[in-house]
């Protein structure tokens, strides 16, 4: 195949005038020198602007919304890392960020990239308002597709409990999980059992006992270890109820296990 000019038909390099060879070497050297004297690129932290509407993004996708979704996530990721994680995240406008994540997720609802970024990156800032915004986003996204997105709202519940110390919010998220009907899908049982742990934390022992009893009698739990765990839990809760106080024995290890399972 005659793709390139045949080297057999090329004359030796020496036929080129000396000045043209010197020009090549000189220009190359100058290019390298010119580049080396340029300042190292420093990303300036620019404010995140508002996301365009979904229809505009669909139009921009040129029939490839999944591709645009990934591309925008990479762009958003690079945007966040303009000048370092801690500074940039705090400096981002989370209202706009939430809009961007919503639109990117709408471009490809099967992608978990925006949800992972929201729960593991953007919700890590030490700003309760911003954390709440991300939790709200995760909660809202979960309601659109519970079987696929339970993992993220479970993580949001943990964030609400441990980072925000907002037990009512954690309970709301745990209840969303347990009442969403996702138990019919192949998901771990602890997902729907988070509620009673949070109830226990809140001192709502009666409700917690009631919930564990309902779970045990529902017939959905068939794993022997899990039944054993719940029985133990029930006994402990009843004992606490009789003593009239809250003892959190065993709770941290349960939540730790949950956290590990959320992010394999």
């Amino acid at each position: 195949m005659k793709m390139f000019a045949s080297s057999a038909r090329l004359r030796p390099l020496s036929v080129a005038p000396l000045w043209s060879r010197l020009l090549l070497i000189g220009a190359l050297a100058m290019q390298l020198l010119w580049h080396s004297v340029q300042p190292t690129p420093q990303a300036k932290a620019e404010p995140l602007f508002a996301a365009p509407s979904g229809s505009t993004l669909r139009l921009m996708a040129l029939g490839e919304p999944e591709l645009l979704s990934r591309g925008l996530m990479l762009w958003l990721q690079a945007f966040d890392y303009q000048s370092g994680v801690s500074v940039t995240f705090q400096g981002l406008d989370y209202r706009h960020l939430e809009d961007w994540l919503t639109q990117i997720l709408a471009l490809d609802p099967l992608s978990s990239y925006p949800l992972l970024s929201a729960s593991r990156l953007y919700a890590e800032v030490k700003d309760p308002e911003k954390q709440r915004r991300m939790i709200h986003f995760l909660h809202r996204s979960f309601l659109q597709d519970p079987p696929r997105r339970w993992r993220w709202v479970a993580h949001a519940a943990i964030l609400a409990k441990h980072r925000l110390n907002d037990l009512p919010l954690a309970l709301k998220l745990a209840r969303t999980l347990s009442q969403s009907g996702i138990e019919q899908y192949d998901i771990p049982h602890w997902v729907t059992q988070m509620e009673f742990v949070i109830l226990e934390d809140m001192g709502e022992l009666e409700q917690a006992v009631q919930m564990v009893r309902t779970l045990l009698h529902s017939g959905q739990i068939i794993d022997a270890n899990e039944i054993h765990f719940l029985m133990e839990r029930l006994e402990m809760l009843e004992r606490q109820q009789q003593q009239g106080g809250v003892q959190k024995s065993g709770e941290p290890s349960y939540m730790k296990k949950v956290e590990q399972e959320i992010m394999p």
Binding site: A5, R9, L10, R11, P12, L13, V15, A16, P17, S20, R21, L23, L24, G26, A27, L28, M30, Q31
Partner: peptide, 16 residues
């Protein structure tokens, strides 16, 4: 442009 032109020149001069 000087760099590219020089490269093109070398290629051009070598052609039979």
């Amino acid at each position: 442009t000087a760099l590219l032109a020089a490269a093109a020149l070398l290629d051009l001069y070598r052609k039979s």
